[in-house]
Structure formats: structure tokens, C-alpha cells
Design a binder for these strands. Sequence first.
DNA 1: AAGCCGCACAACCGCACGGGA
DNA 2: TTCCCGTGCGGTTGTGCGGCT
Length: 261
Amino acid sequence: MGRQPCCDREGLKRGPWTMEEDRRLIDFIINNGIQCWRMVPKLAGLLRCGKSCRLRWINYLRPDLKRGALSEAEEKQIIELHARLGNRWSKIASHFPGRTDNEIKNHWNTGIKKKLKLLGVDSNADNRIMKDKKQHQASKNEQFNIASTNENTQVDCAKIDELGPENGMNSKNHYDDMCRILDVDSCTNKDHENLTSTSRCDSNSLSFENSSSINPNSSLGGSSSVEVDYSSQQWVDGVDSLLLWDCFNQQDDLFFLLENN
DNA sequence: AAGCCGCACAACCGCACGGGA
DNA sequence: TTCCCGTGCGGTTGTGCGGCT
């Protein structure tokens, strides 16, 4: 179909964001929310395309972002999920509240991938798994007229395993191999459950779904260790609602944090 | 001190997808 | 049903920084 590039307008700024631009974007989103990303830069007085604003918000300015290096447990989890899902970074990221797909993708490309390569593990095998899986699934659907569903990680895993070793798709073995090589001693379901508790953030609609407790203070890089349970706050629609949250109910706090990051 | 190199990560690009008209 | 538009996603590039020579 082809789409017009969203950044075709002359005079749009590119490259690293300045503090002032960040301020404007945060200020606008906090006060107005997000109706249409394309309108955001115009209304916020930014010489950026909407896409750029969205990316900046999602990957850097979002208040629920967890900053800092990925933990060992998270790394293990990423390897496991990558073995199952391949390069579907957004799906993988959805298992890590406060982490972005970009962050995980970068971590994979710079750290884990290299580590695996060094140890003689073919990290691209995961991509082949996904390609083969798609092909197999397509032919399977033709044969049995089964609606394809790949939104659920567990389903994905089951399907990959179901395809069997004849297609080179024994993801469990593949993951186990990687775990062994990386000296990952346990890849238990318990570990998986802990990290995949159904916490999701829909950054576009600015709504949050939580079934586990999060620590917004640490998300913002704060020093407080107070755990806040927002389990009763199933969905938070719009930025106005976000402002109810203790961690960023003061716009000044955001700016303070920005300046100190 | 200067230049080079590699790493980490922010940001961009282009295609795909889904929804609405 | 088709077309258009906004957004999501994954791959790639750009850039800043620290370590090394």
C-alpha cells in the first residue's frame, strides 16, 4: 500500500532531544494527554514529527520506565523468551514492566547476542525457529482451517514444541542448551511466573494494567524503596489519571528528575 | 594529549497492521 | 470492498563516551 513518510516536512528537527524539547513534550502530554501523535508536536510547539515524539515518550520520558541495567534474572528471561518468540521485541518487552522493546533489543544486540556468539551459540537460530514456525503454522491452518493465534506466549511455546524436532523447532532444547552454555542453573517455571506476571503497559493509550505490584519510585530513579501496590487500579485512562499517582503527581518532580538524570 | 576503537543506547527509517470512512 | 490514516514494530544507523594505545 505504501505510506507517506511522516517526517517529510521541511524544517523538522532530528537527532538528540534537548531538555527544553523534553519539557515541552512532557508538559503537553501531562496537560492534554495523547489524542493523535501527529498533532502532538504541532500543539506542543515542537519541530519534530509525531513519530519522533511518540518514540521519545515511549522509550525515554514515560514515567513508568525502569531505568538502569537489566538484572541477571531479566537477562535469563529475555533469553528464554527470545528462544520462544524470536525477535518479537515488543512481545518480549511486555513481560518486563518498565522496560521498552528498544531497550531489550539493544541489550540483546550488544550484550547477550555477543555473549552467545562468543560461546558458540547461534542466536539467529531463534529467527529460523520463528520463520519455520510461521510457515508450518500457515500450512497447518490451510490443512485444518485453524485460526492462527500467536498473541499468547504460552500458546506460542506450545505450538513450537508441538511442531517437533523434525522441523528443528525444539525451542525448549534450544533454550536449555543456551542456559547450559551460559551457566544458567535453573530455568524453572516459578522463575518464569515471577517475571511474567501479567503486567502490561499500553503506552499509546496511557493506560496500565497491573496484577503485580510495581515501584514507581524506582521506576523514576528515585531512592525510595516504598513498594506501592496498584493492583486495585486496573486501568488508568488518560494522563489526568496518571497524575493521581504518588510518584508523578507533581509535574515539577518530573522536571527535577529529568534534570538530574 | 590526541587519536582510535568498541560499546551502549538513543533515534531514525520503512514496512505492516488495524480501524474507520 | 477499497482506500487512507495513525500507530506499532523490528532493523538499522548515529552519536556520545570511556578505555586503550
